[in-house]
Amino acid sequence: MNKTRKLTGVILAGGASRRMGGQDKGLVRFRERPLVAWVIDALAPQVDEILIIANRNLDAYRAFGHRVISDLRPDFPGPLAGFEAALTHASHDWILTCPTDAPLLPAEYACLMSRAALGSAAVAFVDAHWQPVFSLLPKTALPSLSAALDTGERKAQRWLASIDPVLVTLDEYAAQLRDADTPEDLTAL
């Protein structure tokens, strides 16, 4: 793969998983393997490092052989807190995010995002909707993100809009970017 920049791949596994009945989504099984294993296998060849953002079952996530980082803020404040932890701990100047419950992640995800963005932050745009958990972010966005979280911001799309990202249309990958928020979603995958 011809990457345009060094990337830290970030798997967002830190949520409370309320719609999945409180189960830790990354460890829920899909086709005989935990969801996070599928995402690691898809993302690892595309990036230079993987970080898993998790707030519980840390040893289970560490068993996959990648650094595991927890949110810097308590009480599961959402994907923005995961972005903040990743931007704080990433070894590279850019992070590429995806949720732990997207086991069909495209093999060309990093290239698609990097080539479209060229030096700007980027967010996947599918079926005329922002997909904030599929983002490409520079470390330079960290001060803005931390300030937004300090004021109580929890809406990923609102903060992302404030940094004027490139919207990367990925309609042809809609099925591969679907996530499994509920047991029914997982069955549908």
Rank of each mutant, 00 (worst) to 15 (best):
Arg29Leu: 12
Val36Tyr: 06
Ala174Met: 09
His89Asn: 10
Gly152Ala: 10
Ile52Ala: 01
Arg154Phe: 08
Arg115Met: 09
Ala161Tyr: 10
Asp59Trp: 13
Pro103Asn: 05
Met113Lys: 06
Asp181Gln: 12
Met113His: 04
Thr169Asp: 14
Thr140Glu: 08
Thr100Met: 07
Ala86Phe: 01
Arg5Ala: 10
Pro132Asp: 07
Leu51Trp: 00
Trp38Leu: 05
Pro79Tyr: 14
Met113Pro: 02
His89Leu: 01
Glu32Ser: 14
Ser144Tyr: 07
Leu142Ile: 06
Leu87Cys: 01
Ala110Lys: 00
Pro165Tyr: 00
Arg62Val: 01
Pro45Ser: 15
Ala116Asn: 09
Thr88Pro: 00
Glu172Phe: 12
Arg178Cys: 10
Leu170His: 01
Arg5Gln: 07
Ala37Thr: 14
Leu104Asn: 15
Ala90Val: 02
Ser91Ile: 11
Asp75Cys: 02
Ala180Pro: 03
Arg33Gly: 07
Arg67Gly: 05
Leu142His: 11
Asp24Cys: 12
Ala54Val: 03
Leu96Thr: 02
Asp93Met: 06
Leu186Cys: 12
Arg31Ile: 05
Asp181Val: 07
Gly9Asp: 06
Leu142Met: 08
Gly78Pro: 04
Asp150Phe: 06
Trp94Gln: 02
Gln157Leu: 11
His129Gln: 14
Gly9Thr: 02
Ala180Trp: 01
Ser70Asn: 05
Ile50Tyr: 05
Thr88Ser: 02
Gly21Glu: 02
Val47Gln: 04
Tyr61Ala: 04
Ala85Gly: 03
Ala147Leu: 15
Val28Ala: 06
Trp94Ile: 04
Val36Met: 03
Ala86Cys: 09
Ala180Asp: 05
Ala107Leu: 13
Cys98Ser: 08
Gly152Cys: 06
Leu96Ala: 04
Thr100Trp: 00
Ile69Ser: 00
Phe134Asp: 04
Trp159Ile: 10
Ala121Asp: 08
Asp127Val: 13
Met113Gln: 05
Leu167Asn: 14
Leu80Val: 00
Leu43Asn: 07
Leu96His: 03
Phe83Cys: 01
Lys3Gln: 09
Ala110Cys: 09
Leu43Cys: 15
Ile95Gly: 01
Asp171Arg: 13
Glu49His: 11
Lys25Arg: 15
Leu27Val: 05
Leu96Lys: 04
Thr187His: 10
Ser162Thr: 15
Ala128Ser: 15
Phe64Ile: 03
Ser146Met: 10
Pro74Lys: 10
